[in-house]
Structure formats: C-alpha cells, structure tokens
Design a binder for these strands. Structure first.
Lengths: 149, 149
DNA sequence: CAAAATAGTTGACAAAATCAACTATTTTTC
DNA sequence: GAAAAATAGTTGATTTTGTCAACTATTTTG
C-alpha cells in the first residue's frame, strides 16, 4: 500500500537533490561554502548562541563546526565570549562585519531564487507555496519523532 | 510579492536537507556511499547506458564518475563493453551480482522509509503523495529551463 | 569530593569532489 | 579526404569536506 508513496518520495528526493544543487551552485561565486553559509545563517538568527545550539540545529559534527567558527573568528566575522553562567560554553555572536556579510549573502541568494521563480506564473507560485508548506507540516512529525544519533 | 515564497522555499530547503540527511543515513550501514548508490540506481534503470548518460542525469563530474565505475568494475558489479557504433563510448551494464546488490540496497531503503511513514496515518500519506507530486510538477519547469554549466 | 557529564579544541585521517592534462576515437569543415 | 574540432573517458595532483578519537576545562550529580 505505502509502496507507491515510497517510490514517490524517493523519486522526489532524487529530483529535489538536483534542485538544491541548482540553488546552491551560486554559493560557488561566494566566499562561503555551503555549510559555512548555513552556520552563518544560524549565527545570525540564533544570536547569541553556543556551538552546541548550532550543532543541534544542523546536525553537524562538533569538530567540523569548531573549525568553521575558528575560521569566522579569524575573518573577524564572529565574536566569542565565555559564558558567565556556564564556563564551559562560549557565547557566539556575529560582528558588525559578520552581520553585513550575512546580509550580502542572503540578499544575493534571494535575488537569484526570485529570478528562477519568474519562470512560474503568479498563481503557480502561490500553489507552490501551499504545497511546500503542506509537505513540511506532514513531514515535521517524522523529522521530529526520529531518535537522534 | 514573491518575497514570501522565496523565504518559504529557502526554509523548506533547510528543512528538507535534514530529511534527506535522515533518509540517507542508513546508507552508512551499507557498502555504498551516497553517490555510489545513485550511480548504481542509474545503471540499473538505464541499462545499457554510457558514462555520459549518467553524467547528464546526475550532474556529476566525469573524473569522479569514472572512478566510481572503476570501483564497481573491480567489485565485479559492472560490465563494460566498448560500443561498436561509437568507439569512444563504453556501454555499461550491471553484472548479475551488480543487479543483486542493487536490489538488496533498494529493498533495504524501501523498508526503512516505509518504517518512517508509519508515523503518518494513511490519509496523511495520501496527502503527502499529492503535494510532492505537485511540487515536482511545478518545479520541473524551472529545473528543465535552467541553462546547464 | 570523586565520578560522570558537557562544551569545545586539536591532530590525524579518510572520503568526496574538482581541475587540468592526456589518449583515443569520431565528426566537421574546407 | 586530411587537418581541426569535438566527444568519451581516464589519470594524476590537489583541495575540500567530513569523521574519529583523544584531550582540556568546566560543571553537575550522587
């Protein structure tokens, strides 16, 4: 019974992997790699947060993350302050430059995506939004339930 | 106007990246890497095909693909015959073992996904299928139109 | 207060991916 | 129909990305 849905999902995944690849390609003209861009996003939206917070959201390895944060620090994008409440953790926040870099990246990404969406009519765009939202709502249950690690 | 949709899509992408990661994790208990699994899929469904065919479908680098195919050949999963019609290309097809390996992998993947889908009711599953199909139909236009490379 | 847990860093590696140069054919062009 | 351009695939060198285990420094728990 669910057999057909399984095939639909797997086929969708192959397809959507291509879409994501397409969208991410523009990052290549950028100073950030894909995971870096994502970390930057988390920093911007989570401020102030800890490396552990980001690890949870992104399911990224801590050593890998640590090095990305180090790089950002060297590039003066990131400020780190040891937490007073808990001396083990470090509070992360973007510097003014960091925020600026994020905005630049973010806007370029938006522009690019908007460009692609022009290929659809307005009503198609609206439809798309509805379906995406529904897919997400349905899958959130699964994503949330699955035991991590 | 499209601004909101842009945000919806990007947010969906972050979310769905996690879903794909979740689904792919099981490959780790497998003798195949993610791109290897995908190449195997292409071989199984494209038989007989050429490396170029796979390159187009997967948007994978030719040298990278070449090495994956070499590995498959060494593992006796793949048979290669120089094309008579065009001496530059090689016709690829899975060996009996290769097909068997693909089926094993494929079934394990299906089982795993089916397991996850049990978290949804049957009507939710049906809904999901509908929305996925719609998203794909809508985005196919974009994916198809964009100039490659 | 000793033992266990948590936060993060570091070193050593392994896996994944890219780039350019090269061989061998086939197609194009004049 | 021969030289030039294009196509298919391979190989070597390298870079990027990601993982694993061991370690330091705190904090929490019993």
């Amino acid at each position: 019974m669910a057999e057909q849905l399984v095939q639909e999902i797997r086929s969708f995944n192959r397809f959507y992997t291509g879409i994501i690849g397409l969208l991410d390609r523009h990052l290549l003209n950028t100073r950030f790699s894909l995971p870096e861009a994502r970390v930057l996003y988390e920093l911007f939206h989570g401020e102030p947060c800890t490396a552990s917070n980001i690890m949870e959201n992104m399911e990224i390895d801590k050593s890998y993350l640590s090095r990305i944060l180090l790089k950002f620090t060297k590039q003066k994008l990131l400020l780190r302050v040891r937490s007073e409440a808990d001396g083990r953790s470090v509070l992360l926040s973007l510097s003014a430059t960091g925020r600026q870099e994020f905005r630049k990246l973010n806007e370029a990404t938006n522009r690019q995506l908007k460009e692609l969406l022009k290929l659809l009519s307005v009503s198609q765009q609206e439809e798309l939004a509805v379906h995406l939202r529904s897919v997400r709502d349905l899958l959130e249950k699964i994503h949330g339930t699955v035991i991590k690690k």
